[in-house]
Write a protein that binds this DNA or RNA. Sequence first.
DNA 1: GCGACAG
DNA 2: ATCTTGTCGC
Length: 219
Amino acid sequence: MHTGDWPSTAEEALAVQEALRGRVELTDDLPELPPTVTGLDVAYDEDDGIAAAVVTLETAGLTVVEERTHRAKAVFPYEPGLFAFRELPPLLAALSDLEREPDVLVCDGHGLAHPRRFGLACHLGVLTGRPAFGVGKTRFVGTHEPLGPARGASVPLVDAGEEVGAVLRTRDGVKPVYVSAGHRIGLAHACRLTLALTPRYRLPETTRRADRLSRAALR
DNA sequence: GCGACAG
DNA sequence: ATCTTGTCGC
């Protein structure tokens, strides 16, 4: 659980981002292939009901090690750029129920590829202290050159002259994903991990598992 | 002023 | 995010 107070307005949320953005660590102590990878996702119903799910997989083999869910009511509206304030509460609750400390968090959304360089992956990383990165399904900020058609192809995602992430093709001829560092992990490393998590589908196995679990938990 | 806009 | 049928392709 968190401290007790949570932003209720966009102004407060922006102030929190401003206060925490400096705590992002652009370091990388993570082993090339950490023992486990933890995916997170949130599902919604038509009445502000939300279900968060976290799934920890063994990196080699992608088998489930542990999974947890948490149901709640949304406490913040969806707003581009402030997305974390909506999903973080239930995600943190589910994470705190894990028995094994996550080695790295794979988020369904962006990290540094955010208007203020503090997307969900950065926020989650800073609050938990764990390494974290984001894998977004669609672009939020930045532009990029055309991308090759084969799995593994990638080009820098640039916003305001800064390299904020990478556009990465995880499957041949399939729409790419947007990878960005969140906390305590480098972009190249995050891309390599993303490829290790996509042996068959476009999205990381962590995200797919968490997505299924969160939907199931909603009922 | 006109779009764009993570999930 | 979620609402939803058929359809094209491997």
